[in-house]
Simulated scan of single mutants.
Amino acid sequence: MNEDTFWQLIEDCRPTEPDPDAELLADTLAERLAQCPLSLVIGFAEQLSWALFRLDRKEYGHDLGGDAFLYTRAAVVAAGRTVFDSVLEDPAAFAPYATDLIWAEPLLYTPDRAYKRITGKEWDRDTRYSYESCSNIEGWADHPRFMAGQGR
């Protein structure tokens, strides 16, 4: 799955009514992906991890803890490509998500749910990029925690 297909799928599955925690989005995405070949589910997981990894930077999450920062980054992805691109371009656009604690945790489990529906098995997923907070070492390179040699 390429990046354009990923974002189009997010857009196509976003509900028209308010979805504060992205539960409806996650359900619709999982349902749609479960009807696709397994390769598309894997591609979705890779693109989701890549998007979350790109938002894993000190300028976005210096005031948020690990899970809060992860779920907030997921909310930016759930908001769609336009919001995602605006946040990448201007870190200040991330502030409303962090300040209001807008989370989209269910989005993280979407590929796993689709995988299970297709295969009947749990997925021990391992994507090229980790979406866990502070995994993007380059994005945190001059953060005091890393400069002191403490690592992740």
Rank of each mutant, 00 (worst) to 15 (best):
H62I: 00
W103E: 14
G61L: 00
R54A: 12
W140A: 00
I42V: 13
D90N: 15
T82I: 10
L29S: 03
R145I: 15
A51E: 05
R113A: 15
A93G: 08
Q8R: 12
E23H: 05
A141F: 12
D4T: 13
G66M: 09
G61Y: 01
A114P: 07
V87L: 04
W140N: 03
I42R: 11
A68C: 11
Q35H: 14
L29R: 08
E89W: 06
W140L: 00
L9F: 02
E3M: 09
A95S: 12
L40K: 05
D124V: 14
D19E: 05
S133T: 14
T127A: 01
Q47T: 05
F53V: 12
K58V: 05
E59T: 03
Y129H: 12
A78T: 06
F69Y: 09
R113Q: 15
E31W: 06
E31P: 01
R117W: 12
P144I: 08
A93H: 11
L40T: 14
I42Q: 10
F53A: 03
A34E: 12
E23K: 03
A79K: 02
V87A: 01
G80N: 03
A68F: 07
E132M: 04
T16I: 09
A78H: 02
L29Y: 05
D12P: 09
D90Q: 11
C134P: 01
A51F: 02
F6Y: 13
E59C: 13
S135G: 02
E59V: 09
L25N: 03
W50L: 12
L9A: 05
E23P: 09
T119P: 00
F53K: 09
S39W: 01
Y115K: 09
K116T: 15
A95L: 12
P106M: 10
L52M: 11
P18T: 11
E138V: 08
G43T: 05
Q47C: 08
A92D: 15
F84C: 03
Q35I: 04
G65C: 07
L40F: 11
L70V: 09
V77Y: 13
I10D: 00
W7K: 07
D126E: 15
P106E: 10
T16R: 07
L48W: 06
D19N: 03
I42A: 13
P96Y: 06
R128W: 10
F69R: 04
